[in-house]
Every structure is written in structure tokens, then in C-alpha cells.
Design a binder for these strands. Structure first.
Lengths: 245, 245
DNA sequence: CATCCACGTTGACGCAGATCAAAGCCCGGC
DNA sequence: GCCGGGCTTTGATCTGCGTCAACGTGGATG
């Protein structure tokens, strides 16, 4: 038995996967009613993480994956000299902690960018359940594979795109993920700072800021602080496909 | 039954995992004698891929993973305008194809950089076996997780390192992987061109060439075409940890 | 053995984005 | 309602790497 109270002081927060409105985005995706019921036994603990607090740090022992129930995270890796590479931004329904399986230690930091709540998925249990539930096993493999493909996308951003292409790709990606969660595709609030965006995109915060301003001048977006309104989706997409020079 | 002859005209090439000298680097890592015997049933087909030929292409249907038996590969993603991002270089014992699980289509190209041979691992079979063999399941998860961590390392290269740091990290990484395979840590032949190294590191081939020349001037390496000799490992490592500016 | 051609090296110059600097904005705390 | 500090914007200047160009080199081919 797991000491639920160590994580969570409000036991009634317990809410089964089968009742969760994220179930079609998250780990239970594609499971039958019955199989989802089994997941309710796997995921029994939730954990709050306040804004700017760590869910885990590089070097921490790995025991569980985390499904984001509400909130917004970043993952990053730090060099000794203080340089930071943000490796991703994660939102509701997405899985954190996959980096820890290989070495049994986390290899990056996961930080909440707003007050958040995660479902704790003890990894040994997940492996046991997925030996019985083929659909769960298969879906978990897909989740990991998609993370690899996502990483390849970031490599393309960083390796071959210019500053404005990177930012356009970033905005379109956020838009698409917000849409999948039932929010507006064209209007949202950024949870991260210009510095964090820059660190993700391999740019300095001034460059990010200038690119935002340029997009606004060109009528592609409205931006006021963290509030973003996309005015011209196809214009942004065109930025990605047309290669000047 | 799988039509072995479609892949392989020399049936005696069949060689079981349990006999393979890569078994401690590859998928069977950490399995018991008995479990490894079961893998011999899983991996029954091998496939030759000649230099500069594709093992698979982006868009191809995904059916199997591939363990590299001999040879050397690159994986890359292409943009419509011809820009190429090399996402990795793979050598004996490493697994290709993980990108395809999520969408059931491959999302990158895998190209042999020298005449190579791979073991075909039908993915549906792998999932079946790993439901029975816990150690296989767990090791497979580790392989995927390590791929994610490796990708984070590439993001750091691309996002925050300068040209010479990237190349130093690249050489040290190759050195370490050759060592693990029983080859010299300090002397090896590159299988890829300057252009491919550049594409991987987010640099132009001229920059790669200049960095090689600079390392040689500084007595860190000897480089002659594709032949590399590392003279000063700690000097290369120092390049990574010390941040000028 | 001569030829060819992809690959590699080196130099000169230019530019995208970094760096440095200064000022504005917004929100939280008192 | 005022103050302070973190975040953002914008301008001026600098620089690492890209771009362009010319030449070198070595392995493959007939």
C-alpha cells in the first residue's frame, strides 16, 4: 500500500481514469470500458505541484511516470555553467518522466509553470498491468515513440530553422495542442517566459521578443505580454514552408 | 511464416541472438540463457543493406524494429525545400525504427553509411514476447527511454553549444560507443561525410572542417580525411565544461 | 595509368542573431 | 496607492558561423 497522504492531503481528490475527461488524450486512450476500470487501480495517487516547484529533478530516483491532470510544466537540462536547455513544455494529458526509465534516475528537471496536479503512475505497476492489457502495452509504446518523434521535431527546429520559423512552429504547435484539449486554437495565454521560449528554441529572449513584435507588425498575431491571438494561421504556416535564401 | 528468402538469399546467415557477440549491447541485454533462447524464435530474419541504400523511408509502413548486426547507419528527416536534419548515427547493437511505433509509419529515413546487416524484429511479435518475458519488456522500455535521453543530449548540442563544443561532444560520444564495442577509443574511421556531421550538429560542412583543423592545430586530434586519432581526451572534455564568454 | 568526381580544405566577406544597454510595463506586497 | 523587482521591449553594436569561391585530394573506374 502506498502512503497516499504523503502526496495528497485531500483524499476526495481521488478520481478514476474512467471518469477523467482527459482519458482520450492520456494513457487510457483507446482502452475498453473494462480495461479502463483496471487502470483505476493502477493510478490511485495524485500530487499537487505549485507553480515554480519541481515535480522531479535530474538525479532523483525514478519510480513513477506522471500524467498531467491540470496545469503546465517544462522539462529542462542544465549545464554546470548555468546554461539551460528546455527540452519540452507539457500540458494536460501528457506524460512526464519517460526519461528516467533507462537509467532508473531522472535525467532532467520537471518544473510546474502554473499550479498543477499530476496522476502518479508507479512504473513497476504499469509494466505489470501492460503485461495483462495488450492495448495498454501498445498504447504506452506509442506514447514513448511519439515522444521520440517529437524530439526529432525539436532537432529540426534547432538544427535547420531560422528564428522566425522556429517561433512560428512553436505557436502552431501550441495552438494545435490547445485545440485538442477543447480550447481556442487562436487565442491563449503563454505559461512560459520569453527566456524559457528562447531556451526551448535555441534563441535569446531578445530574439524571441523581436520575432513576436515582427509577427505583430505583419498582422500574423496580436501579442500583449503572455496573451497571444493568432490572426493568420496560414501566414504562419507559410513562414515554415517557404524558404527564402 | 515469414518469407525469409525475400530478405536474405543466404540462409546460413541465420544466427541466433544467443550466439551473437552483440547480445550484451543489444536487445537481449540482461536476459537469462533461457529467455535468450526464446528471442532466437523472435528474431529469425536478417537483411542486408548496401551502402547508401535505405533500410526504410519516412512514410513507409511500420512493421518491425531493426537491430544492427554489422555496419553503420544514419537517420534523417528532410524538409520539402531540401534541408536535411540528421537525427542520429547508429552502430552495431543499436536499434532502428522506434520512431514508427507511434503512427505506424516511419517518420524518418534510415540509410546505411556502409554495407550493413540488420536483424528484423517484427514488432507485434516483440510485444507478444515481452508480455511473457518481463526482463525483455523492461529492457525494451529502457532502450526507448535511452533514445529519448539521447535526443535530449542532441537538443543541448543544438540549442546551447558553440561549434567546437558540438564537435568535441560528437567525437567523445563516438569514442565512447566504439569503446563499448571493443574498438579503440582513440582511433577510428568516420563513416559519415563532413556534410552529414554538420547536418547532425546544426553546422555547415565548412564549419565542421574548420573545427577539425583547429583541433588538430591545438594538438587535440589528428585528422586525415575520415581517419581520426584522438590525442588529448581530457582536452576535448575540457572544451565542453569550460565556458568562455 | 589517366581521368573524374565527390569530398574536403581554406580564405574573404556578410549577416542573423547575440550581446550590451536602457527604458517601459505589470503585478504583488506593504 | 505606492514601491520594487521580474519580465519585456527596443535600439546599437558585435561576432560566430554561414556563404561564396577557389583549389586540393584520394578513391573509383575503365
Amino acid at each position: 500500500m502506498r502512503a497516499k497522504s504523503a502526496y495528497l492531503s485531500v483524499p476526495q481528490l481521488r478520481e478514476a481514469c474512467s471518469q477523467c475527461n482527459l482519458r482520450e488524450l492520456c494513457l487510457p486512450m483507446g482502452l475498453s470500458e473494462h480495461e479502463m476500470g483496471q487502470l483505476d487501480e493502477l493510478v490511485t495517487v495524485r500530487k499537487r505541484v505549485l507553480r515554480s516547484h519541481h515535480l522531479y529533478r535530474g538525479g532523483d530516483g525514478f519510480e513513477a511516470l506522471y500524467a498531467i491532470k491540470t496545469g503546465f510544466f517544462k522539462t529542462d537540462v542544465l549545464l554546470e555553467d548555468g546554461r539551460e536547455q528546455v527540452t519540452g513544455f507539457q500540458m494536460a494529458g501528457e506524460i512526464l518522466g519517460l526519461d528516467g526509465i533507462g537509467t532508473e534516475k531522472h535525467t532532467c528537471n520537471a518544473v510546474a509553470l502554473e499550479d498543477s496536479e499530476v496522476c502518479v503512475i508507479p512504473f513497476a505497476d504499469l509494466e505489470n498491468y501492460s503485461r495483462e492489457i495488450g492495448a495498454l502495452q501498445h498504447h504506452f509504446h506509442k506514447v514513448m515513440s511519439r515522444e521520440i518523434v517529437r524530439d526529432h521535431g525539436v532537432m529540426m527546429l534547432l538544427g535547420i530553422m531560422r528564428a522566425e520559423e522556429r517561433l512560428a512552429a512553436f505557436l502552431l504547435n501550441l495552438s494545435q495542442r490547445f485545440t485538442a484539449r477543447g480550447y481556442s486554437p487562436t487565442e491563449f495565454n503563454l505559461r512560459m517566459t520569453r527566456n524559457e521560449i528562447g531556451s526551448y528554441l535555441g534563441l535569446k529572449l531578445e530574439t524571441v521578443s523581436r520575432a513576436f513584435s515582427r509577427f505583430q507588425e505583419e498582422g500574423l498575431i496580436n501579442v500583449h505580454q503572455k496573451h497571444i491571438q493568432i490572426l493568420d494561421v496560414t501566414g504562419l504556416k507559410r513562414l515554415l514552408s517557404e524558404r527564402r535564401v
